[in-house]
Design a protein around this nucleic acid. Structure first.
Length: 952
RNA sequence: GGGCUUGUAGCUCAGCUGGUUAGAGCGCACCGUUGAUAACGGUGAGGUCGCAAGUUCAAGUCUUGCCAGGCCCA
């Protein structure tokens, strides 16, 4: 007989018996093809209004509320948005499936500068000036712009698989939102938190307006530098007597506003007596000058001093209490100029002494205020000196084109004439300019509205306590926000802008006190509720003031409120005011969840706002995630060209890949994304998908009658019971992780369960039973019953993460076995019977599994030497102690090791692999002696099954 | 410049209060299977735990410095 004849017979037999084997069958494809399927599913969820169905189905369950932080309605979503929204969705779905009613109301931040700019830009491009546009019209265009992006982002978020109330999100620009934000401001008016103060801001003399930091561009600018002498008039420092302190500045125009001198306690200073000077030097022999010793050579050269000697040394600390005269004393500048320490003063350049004009620099302002230095009001909106300024009234710092003007040169000249100018020069340095006009900017103090941190309201104290009362996840977030709240200055909430909610107040022109009449305030917010805050511009002031007050005696405030105050108020106008979230019970929500930057942003402003109005935090738990970086750990940026676009990624790989990536990363830290990570995630995804596919295939044709009744579970084989135990273990771990906000471990755990417990263990072992056993046998029914339980659990556990894939798998399940839910997302995690838990069994099987592992290792060398192919060709002999022998004999080790035979002998621990005796069964492929006796070359078991099948 | 923070195999992550040869999954290599088949099973090779000092009988784990990142400020 030739080989080919043999092969033919084998092939025929194989074909013959292949049809009698119960191979897995399912329409759930191996390949996900997610980019095509996901959008269809999103559409379906919208069509059936899945969100409403979930709400309806869980209406009676206890509420669990994650309150969404509003993204800014401007531009397409980026990876950070994707991470944030996916995380929220996974967490929310998890709690929902734990048996809670977890509504998700997405929101948007709609007011603010970036949108205002975009609209302004449109006007500029049309050759119009924003200031010429009617504010109502301007705001209308801003609103339309914002709404456009709300709609776009809404669609994009939904493609991520995020389920929420997309039909009815919250927005900071709705009429109710604006009205309630105004009410919140009024609460601070009543509780004493709100006050009017001044603040140092960057000011454009050309546009005559304050600029936000984001409107400022830093570029090179040539400034005048001057070294100026301040004669010491009073000092406890012996060295300083009869000398002049030398300061250095690049802004000569600030000298008329000088009110102090700062030094550094740690710097070494010297007093130098001039002994020889050049002809064109501005100082003379015998002058005594004080400055930092480290800078003496530099100053000597600059001042054209040929020779000088150090006559005294002193530490910065000794300078305390020294008082100087202004260089223009006798010409209207007769006040004292005190010296104070300041850490920011260095001896890197200049003189080691810094001149202080509290009105014209942020450091000057903050420290100057602390030392009680006068905040001058010398400079007008257009950059000219006000009329009360001696010598320089009317002179402008910059002209209308932003060029340096007499306001800079005149003080310099006056100093020189007074003999107080030591030297002058120029320097090129980075300097703030207007984004719009490109003109250089100046610092100027302007009146602004503040919320006090430390007055009778005690906001800082309340907030610090609220931080302690909140659960911060990860815990390090607490230290971060605590430091910020502990150190922050009063909250400046006013902006001189158009697109926002006005700080809707009237201020008495005479007393400068804001009007606190409730009737007036109510008329204002009622009008906002009806017309939106546009009413502040469109209605007449007298309409708000009513008959009790005369509009002419009041200033109407047109400043708008900081957008952080708006989003910080969402706990009020969203959480408290929406029935679906709220409960109207003034209750804290369960979770705020944002990036770690929000310790300064939303967590922070929400905390202050809520502490000010409610005396406690708006949240119980705060979860933070890190930032998305590129594959090397660098920040994504256009210039580096390393941006990963979530929309593109979804089109290439699918949202479920993105979702899985999020959850397998340690999102508490910054996370990386790149080619490798996506590849890795796709591989993980394939394994999970194939596990679902195998389960679906294994359940092919399963009906309720095949299912083992609950009361017979005790008779199931141990392996089946072990798997039920594994399920109950998983169930407990999963619930524990969710309750402790340890979502990072979930996806990894699920994947490893698919991989280890299922694919390489249970499925591999039970393939024989599924494929070859009698379909009606108790054992096969038990296996298939357990498969339905595994599927029931796994598909639901996966649903929060792989929302699309789980839904797809759910749609492929056999009928009549599972809960009748239209969508997987309408389900809860299955409640597993207590009886499934079986620690003793698990303990026993630990040993069995260890033995299995040893057998597998022992087979390997034979395979390598070609002594063996399939493990079914082997018959291991295990030598073990009597105890072990007993345990192993109680189970079918051949099945478990997927070998055709298995012998256990008493003896010293050892393993021998022998070849199984007999021939390969043409149906089940086991190598058994009995096969030889059958005409069809099949084993007894298979023969029975085939005969029974034919009879049926 | 300041506050907070990160750095463990090619990738994603574990490593509790310092204690035997640093773990897992993926990927990779090799083998098996060809009845989960663009799948499945097994075995194996990969790490001076960012670098350098120090504390200790003992450090990935504690201290200090440095390097490279990140967030928030200035």
């Amino acid at each position: 007989m030739s080989d080919s004849t043999n092969n033919n017979r084998d092939t025929q037999d194989k074909d013959k018996f292949r049809d009698t084997v119960f191979l897995p069958k399912t329409d759930f494809p191996m390949r996900g093809n997610l980019p095509e399927k996901e959008p269809v599913m999103v559409q379906k969820w919208q069509d059936i209004d899945l969100y409403a169905k979930i709400r309806h189905a869980s209406a009676d369950k206890p509420k669990w509320i994650l309150h969404d932080g509003p993204p800014y309605a401007n531009g397409n979503i980026h990876m950070g948005h994707a991470l944030n929204k996916i995380l929220k969705d996974v967490i929310n779905k998890s709690w929902q499936m734990m048996g809670y009613n977890a509504p998700y109301v997405p929101g948007w931040d709609c007011h603010g500068l970036p949108i205002e700019w975009k609209v302004e830009e449109k006007y500029r491009n049309a050759g119009k000036d924003k200031d010429d546009v009617d504010p109502i019209q301007f705001r209308k265009e801003c609103r339309e712009f914002a709404q456009e992006w709300v709609d776009i982002q809404s669609t994009q978020f939904q493609t991520l698989g995020v389920i929420g109330d997309w039909k009815n999100p919250y927005r900071t620009m709705t009429k109710h939102g604006e009205a309630q934000i105004a009410r919140e401001i009024h609460k601070f008016l009543h509780n004493g938190g709100l006050y009017r103060g001044v603040k140092s801001v960057l000011w454009s003399t050309v546009e005559q307006t304050a600029l936000a930091e984001a409107e400022v561009e830093y570029k090179e600018h040539k400034s005048i530098t001057v070294w100026v002498r301040f004669p010491v008039v009073e000092t406890a420092c012996e060295a300083l007597k009869n000398s002049d302190i030398v300061i250095w500045t690049t802004t000569p125009w600030t000298l008329p506003s000088n009110r102090g001198i700062f030094f550094n306690n740690d710097i070494d200073y010297g007093v130098y007596e001039i002994t020889e000077v050049a002809d064109d030097a501005r100082c003379k022999v015998g002058d005594r000058l004080a400055f930092a010793t480290k800078l003496s050579d530099q100053i000597k050269e600059q001042a054209k001093i040929i020779a000088m000697k150090k006559v005294a040394e002193f530490k910065g600390t000794e300078t305390e209490g020294t008082i100087c005269a202004h260089p223009l004393r006798g010409q209207g500048y007769d006040y004292d100029v005190p010296c104070h320490p300041a850490d920011y003063v260095t001896d890197e350049d200049g003189t080691g002494f810094v001149h202080v004009a509290p009105s014209h620099g942020p450091d000057d302002f903050v420290l100057g205020s602390q030392y009680g230095l006068e905040i001058t009001d010398n400079v007008d909106n257009d950059g000219s000196f006000k009329a009360h300024v001696p010598l320089f009234a009317g002179l402008k710092i910059y002209d209308e084109n932003g060029k340096m003007d007499a306001g800079n040169f005149a003080p310099l000249k006056a100093m020189d004439e007074a003999g107080k100018l030591l030297s002058k020069g120029s320097v090129r340095h980075e300097y703030p300019h207007s984004w719009r006009s490109k003109a250089p900017l100046i610092f100027r103090t302007t009146p602004q509205w503040f919320i006090a941190m430390d007055n009778e309201l005690g906001l800082r104290e309340t907030a610090l306590q609220a931080i302690k009362d909140t659960n911060w996840v990860p815990a390090k977030g607490e230290a971060r926000i605590n430091a910020m709240i502990a150190q922050r200055p009063d909250w400046c909430i006013s902006r001189q802008r158009a697109w926002g909610v006005p700080i809707a107040l009237f201020v008495d022109k005479k007393t400068l006190e804001p009007l606190k009449d409730d009737a007036v305030l109510k008329r204002i917010t009622d009008a906002f509720e009806e017309h939106g805050s546009d009413a502040w511009w469109s209605m007449d002031a007298q309409e708000f003031l009513g008959s009790a007050y005369n509009a002419e005696e009041y200033d109407q405030i047109f400043d708008i409120v900081d957008v952080w105050f708006e989003s910080g108020s969402t706990h009020s106008f969203v959480v408290d005011d929406r029935e679906d979230l709220g409960n109207g019970e003034n209750k804290q929500v369960d979770l705020y969840l944002e990036g770690s930057d929000q310790h300064r942003g939303w967590f922070h402003s929400s905390l202050l706002e809520s502490c000010g109005t409610k005396g406690r935090a708006p949240y119980k738990n705060v979860l933070t995630h890190g930032f998305v970086l590129d594959d090397k750990g660098y920040k994504m940026s256009k210039s580096l060209g390393n941006i990963v676009d979530p929309l593109k990624l979804m089109k290439q790989s699918g949202a479920d890949i993105l979702r899985l990536w999020t959850m397998t990363s340690d999102y508490a830290e910054d996370i990386r994304i790149g080619k490798d990570t996506i590849k890795n995630t796709s591989d993980l995804y394939r394994r999970i998908r194939n596990t679902l596919r195998f389960l679906l295939g294994a359940m092919d044709g399963f009906t309720a009658s095949e299912k083992i009744p609950e009361d017979q579970y005790k008779d199931m084989p141990e392996l089946e019971k072990l798997m039920l135990h594994e399920l109950s273990q998983m169930d407990q771990k999963i619930r524990g992780h969710i309750e402790n906000y340890e979502f990072g471990k979930l996806a990894t755990m699920l994947h490893q369960f698919c991989n280890n417990e299922l694919s390489s263990f249970y499925f591999d072992i039970r393939k024989d039973r599924l494929y070859c056993d009698d379909a009606t046998s108790f054992e096969r029914r038990a296996t298939r019953t357990v498969m339905t339980h595994i599927f029931d659990c796994l598909v639901t556990w996966l649903a929060p993460i792989l929302s699309f894939t789980a839904e797809e798998a759910w749609s492929q399940k056999p009928d009549g076995i599972f809960e009748d839910a239209q969508s997987i997302h309408l389900r809860d995690f299955p409640t597993l019977p207590e009886s499934w838990h079986n620690a003793d069994l698990a303990g026993k099987w630990d040993k069995i599994i260890a033995a299995r592992k040893q057998i597998q290792e022992a087979i390997e060398p034979l395979r390598a030497s070609k002594g063996l192919g399939s493990s079914l060709e082997a018959c291991p002999v295990l030598y073990a102690t009597a105890d072990q022998k007993e345990a192993l004999e109680s189970v079918d080790m051949a099945d478990i090791c997927i070998t055709s035979g298995f012998k256990i002998e008493e003896g010293n621990a050892n393993i021998e692999i022998t070849k199984a005796e007999g021939e390969k069964c043409n149906r089940c492929w086991k190598v058994l002696p009995e096969v030889t006796n059958h005409a069809n070359h099949i084993c007894n078991r298979c023969d029975n099954v085939v005969n029974k099948k034919q009879a049926a």
